[in-house]
Design a protein around this nucleic acid. Structure first.
Lengths: 200, 200
DNA sequence: CATTTTTGACTGACTAGTTAGTAAGTTCGG
DNA sequence: CCGAACTTACTAACTAGTCAGTCAAAAATG
């Protein structure tokens, strides 16, 4: 499984990414302008255009930047016990957005643009594939170790990610962080009903 | 439980709503302009402004229009058997967007704007409350009739709606209509695990 | 080693295009 | 002939992107 975008950023590029990040959290995606990114960067708009020809190019780079960080954060998981590992993984998927609501809002805006922006679509798709790969691996590992019931790992993975996605969207639309807590409970219930072995 | 917005539309207003609907499906929310709505309406932009002072006002009216239609479509359900009724209800929630992908995309865009637009937020919230009320009523009815196990109806309802929301978002972001089918299966599994009485 | 040249990273001023919204005048049915 | 439903023409604001020129530091040159 290919890791998503091994792209690296120069120090200057990273500062622009950070400026974009701040502008995005402050104004949201719909009201994100080069001018505002430049203001956060502390330079002129032409300075931004010097590094990135178009806004689209910059935003594609930004998605690489932010999704790389996200992937790095879930790759940190060290636990090897399948059951625990699955819990930690779901936690990461649900707690990260909870801790940064403004970014979650902006990311949903960007996700909603995927149908109009192939660069966005590709990056989100690749990220999702990677997350799916990780979750599925944990489940398969659990099945192998007889910790989980012999389920269709792909199917269970997709169900869990649908629950996660639902919680993300609802927390943004209804401005309700408790959706994450609820989703964790739902996922837990779902895991209990499908994965938990009774013989344990 | 208050029914969402009993707002009515004059014939002229309805034509503008239909024009907005077409423009939205064609260009998406981010690229929706008064000019484009006017073009679909077949009149000048000033004609639109004659009926709606601001774009925001028009879009709030449009949300009333489209959410009213949605509510009307789920109020049609006649089945009384709780189990069947729940299935039909979930079907409506999942099949409607499947049959109109362009609108689903635009609606996700609008949902993602809720944090910046109180009028949007209020309408989506009200709509969600109504749907939640309906689903919860079916579940409670099923519990009363001993068709379902004695669960926390509110909790189960929220879980089901999270699954529905997740499927909607994923189908838009990943341009994959099969997410709905999968979500239906997940919901079914979830219902089986939590609601189905073994004694039946 | 001193000087010239090149280059990377910018700035300030600009353009062309688009946007929501306005104002004044026109058309037309009851 | 009045008022509802427009039209045409406009404005002010904002947008991404361009362009010519600046400036310091690195590289090349004599």
């Amino acid at each position: 499984m290919a890791e998503p975008s091994g792209r690296t950023f120069s120090e200057t590029d990273e500062e622009i990414m950070k400026a974009t990040y701040r502008a995005l959290r402050e104004y949201g995606y719909a009201d994100l302008t080069i001018k505002r990114i430049a203001a956060e960067y502390g330079k002129s708009t032409a300075a931004i255009h010097y590094h990135y020809d178009t806004k689209e190019e910059l935003l594609a780079a930004f998605l690489d930047y932010i999704l790389n960080r996200f992937v790095a954060s879930i790759r940190e998981i060290e636990t090897t016990d399948p059951e625990q590992r699955l819990t930690v993984l779901l936690d990461k998927l649900l707690v990260a957005p909870q801790e940064n609501p403004d970014l979650s809002v902006a990311l949903l805006e960007m996700r909603s643009q995927a149908p109009y922006n192939e660069a966005f679509a590709e990056r989100f798709r690749q990220n999702d594939e990677y997350v799916r790969y990780l979750v599925k691996a944990v489940i398969n590992h659990g099945i192998d170790e007889n910790a989980f019931a012999d389920v269709d790992a792909d199917r269970v993975t997709r169900s869990l990610l649908t629950i996660v996605e639902g919680a993300r969207t609802r927390s943004v639309v209804f401005d309700d962080v408790s959706e994450y807590e609820r989703a964790r409970a739902t996922a837990e219930e779902y895991v209990d009903a499908t994965l938990r072995r009774v013989d344990a």
